[in-house]
Design a protein around this nucleic acid. Structure first.
Ligand code: MN
Ligand code: MN
Ligand code: ZN
Ligand code: ZN
Lengths: 149, 149
DNA sequence: AATGATATTGAGACTTAATTGCAATGAAAA
DNA sequence: TTTTCATTGCAATTAAGTCTCAATATCATT
């Protein structure tokens, strides 16, 4: 929490936008998640915290948080778009279990370097990337193997 | 075209589903695209080819084509979901220009191997993955550099 | 502290991708 | 052919996300 606030405020100042209490509350709510979240979950969290912020405001705040680098879009699971707080977090990619929904985060330096190489080969200037691997987590794979026996 | 038809027919037979003329036309239309396409484009292509297939049928056919491995979901660009014909095509990942929308396909054996390694380390059984790198293509980067001078 | 320019808000209407119910139709096994 | 059941088109429906607009809040300036 500490200075994500500050980072957001500076970002808004640069853009000549105002740091309203609604935006503060949205940021606070985001930092109380310890996993990916979607707009609906954020809306409910805000209500739990006693702040009734309209969906419209949430939808309008999200692009600002994305631009300021405080959150990132996570893998489109099913229908809804979900997000992830990345303030002061190291970049990582995801393994997603298609059976139970579990998400395992990983970081592989060599994959990252190879991506840079690929970009250079194509004279492409990367801004961001996303690597998502879907499959079965250990537990789910065991279960499924048993069932099909 | 040649035996994607056959593959689809076999898939449908296995599932005890029928190979209707509508499904044939949808498959044919998909094979006349040489790039990613979305449902609306598919609908229009079908009309061009003289086949009026309802959107509902298209939406119902797509999951079957996905399951049978004939197409795959491409990166969510903006709002609409788009798809890509992958019959008899080698797996590849994408560089997407956030300025002009150009898509560059690439394949990097070492990245693929490293992904497998990551999965093993987590006892994760991969089914599919997607790696998308967003950034600026050569042309767009040049343009933007000029403008900001 | 008061002013004023302008950004922001909430509510609900609106847009649009995707899904669904249903009666009519079609495929294909028997 | 007959019979069974999957499939189709249409229109109604759902739901994520956007937009409009009048009322309000922020903040630089006085
Ligand atoms: Mn990565
Ligand atoms: Mn790959
Ligand atoms: Zn699992
Ligand atoms: Zn470009």
């Amino acid at each position: 929490m500490i200075d994500a606030d500050q980072k957001f405020e500076e970002f808004l100042k640069l853009k000549e936008l105002k740091y309203t209490s609604e935006r503060k509350f949205v940021l606070k709510a985001i930092f109380s998640f310890h996993k990916h979240f979607d707009v609906e979950e954020l809306f409910e969290k805000l209500r739990e915290q006693g702040n009734h912020i309209s969906r419209a405001t949430i939808y309008r705040t999200i692009p600002l948080l994305l631009q300021s680098g405080l959150i990132t879009e996570a893998l489109h699971c099913q229908d809804k778009t979900s997000y992830e707080n990345i303030f002061n977090k190291k970049h990582h990619d995801h393994l997603v279990c298609i059976n139970c929904g579990k998400i395992i985060e990983f970081y592989n330096e060599r994959i990252e370097k190879l991506q840079e190489e690929v970009c250079k080969q194509h004279n492409f200037v990367p801004i961001e990337h996303r690597l998502g691997i879907k499959g079965y987590c250990e537990d789910c794979y065991k279960k499924i193997k048993k069932e099909t026996k």
